[in-house]
Design a protein around this nucleic acid. Structure first.
Lengths: 179, 179
DNA sequence: GTCGTTGGCTAATTTGATTAGCCTAAGCGC
DNA sequence: GCGCTTAGGCTAATCAAATTAGCCAACGAC
């Protein structure tokens, strides 16, 4: 009875591969166990249950998304920062549609998930930081709504028409970035 | 053994009440049956199963949303139409957050659901119809992304900061509506 | 090499959806 | 009003997935 070399991190890797393969279908203990080459009950030696696995997966996805937008925003100011945030955000969702779809609507319920979500929020705040007072808050909400809305629709395959989606996105970004 | 007077429509009503009560928790045959005063297997005399019930519920929600945005857009042109669409869309999500959350990400998989989703899309198209060619498509995508993104975040309680959410939304709407 | 802990397994339990099969209430023609 | 048909309720059984219980081998520290 050889060991499989599992760990919470390894299970998250496996779950991400599963999300990539299925395009974001709900995770299950059974499919993750099968991909790990192990029987379902063995999963419980590494995570508390499906809910925790989902939270850890969400945390990892938010971590990766946060890293991408942080790198894009870093060193930029004003409209450039907002543009960079939006493009990096959308790019992540397009590159990993299954992962983006699997993100929980709100990063709550598990410390790691909440922390990773807060990190993304902090970068969004940084991207509108040059605006003052309430205007920064309004800009932040617009940024979040547009980024999440566009990413969600695109990751779901919601844009059926033939016109260039990049152009649509650029147009939206410029509308948001204008003072 | 008295009859309960059920029907697909009545079950949808019950499911909507459930969504309103729980704030959008996943539906289950058991809870709907309990609210209907009936045992779970009886549900199957009216709908094919949970998946069909969910589709019918989604169709009803899209129908109601479509009715709301249609009434708002009706008779308006240009920026006024787009503004009216956005405000009516958001207003629906704020008035029925549980229902909005329960909407399937894409209206596919059941004819009634697809039809109801297409109806909402058609109204969004009408709201940008005065723009020409590809610009109409870009505007449509921006409209959808902003409406869905803002509605999703707000229905999920994602705006924690104290500043006025109406003002944030108005600001976003004016950015989108500008040529 | 032995011991304690870790991580696999099989078997059993629980919860929910679903199906099978029974049985009566309601509507209808006579 | 009476018997027939059908629709809609029920109980009991089945299936799938998560989870728990309890057993045993593998690995690392000594």
């Amino acid at each position: 009875m050889p060991r499989a070399g599992l760990s919470p991190e390894a299970l998250v890797d496996i779950a991400l591969a599963e999300l990539d393969a299925t395009g974001g279908a709900p995770l299950s203990i059974g499919t993750v166990a099968a991909r790990a080459g192990v029987k379902p009950p063995s999963i419980y030696k590494h995570v508390a249950g499906l809910a925790e696995l989902e939270a850890l997966v969400g945390a990892r996805i938010y971590d990766d998304l946060g890293e991408a937008v942080a790198a894009a925003v870093d060193g930029r100011q004003g409209a450039d920062a907002a543009r960079a945030f939006l493009h990096a955000y959308r790019s992540f969702a397009v590159r990993h549609p299954g992962r983006y779809r699997a993100l929980p609507p709100r990063p709550v319920g598990h410390p790691a998930l909440a922390a990773a979500g807060a990190r993304v929020m902090a970068i969004a705040e940084r991207a509108v930081a040059d605006r003052g007072g309430d205007d920064a808050i309004h800009a932040l909400r617009g940024l979040r709504a547009a980024a999440h809305g566009f990413a969600t629709l695109e990751a779901a395959g919601g844009f059926g028409l033939p016109a260039d989606v990049d152009a649509s996105f650029d147009r939206l970004v410029e509308q948001l970035v204008r003072l």
